[in-house]
Design a protein around this nucleic acid. Structure first.
Lengths: 113, 113
DNA sequence: CTCCAACATTACAATATTTCTATATAACTA
DNA sequence: TAGTTATATAGAAATATTGTAATGTTGGAG
């Protein structure tokens, strides 16, 4: 892997590596949601939510639809859901393990379980 | 997902989200390697390699074995290989896609392919 | 013990990220 | 139009990350 590719992959990971952004993606897995509802669920200041939403929109992770005064965000690149499932698996069992064990886990990975 | 969990997941992602760290993991996928060899392969200053290796060791991603004056690093939690495969898939086809498409991709995800 | 090689650690400047506060915009409603 | 609600943005302050250069540590050779 050359440095340029590595930089790009790192950028993708960084785009998601933030507690509020992760929680936003979790909520949006169930479907689109407006900023106000997200703010209420997350318990963070409105500006913080808006900033993180804008950031993820810029990075093509989310998309935004407007309806009157409300802005509805949803996941644009569903790949990110897959990606997060991999991190969750990683976190759930953070001990050392072999490649064979991992292979079994990959085979049993499902979306929405 | 509560904030504490989100913070932990974010920490794991951040531990990997750096071009040099990604390249180190790529190299160690093939087996353990000493710092000097890694430095040569990566083309970065020795201090940078040592810093990033130490960081990933602290975060339980790598482990270190010493033999005389050399330090051999290897991947401790093989889950991280799985995780990176997911990012690569994400990066390869960064367009928007549906959950069903993703499911097919998950089913076909293999280590070392 | 002295020197050298292989790594690790530290200090510091540069940069990037995050958060906060305040303010701006845009679409309704009366 | 004035007021209100929903969201976005700007700018400053706090914090975190990174790279560089210098120095410290450890183990082996002589």
């Amino acid at each position: 892997m050359d440095h340029e590719t590595a930089q790009h992959v790192a950028d993708v990971l960084k785009a998601v590596a933030h507690p509020v952004r992760l929680q936003i993606i979790e909520l949006l897995k169930q479907g689109e949601m407006c900023v106000g509802d997200l703010v209420e669920r997350l318990g963070v200041p409105q500006a913080v939510a808006s900033q993180q939403l804008g950031l993820m929109k810029d990075k093509q992770i989310l998309q935004c639809r407007r309806d009157g005064t409300k802005a509805f965000y949803s996941i644009k690149n569903a790949n990110v859901i897959n990606l997060l499932h991999c991190v969750y698996h990683h976190c759930e069992r953070e001990g050392s393990k072999t490649s064979e064990t991992i292979q079994k886990e990959i085979d049993s990975t499902k979306i929405g379980d």
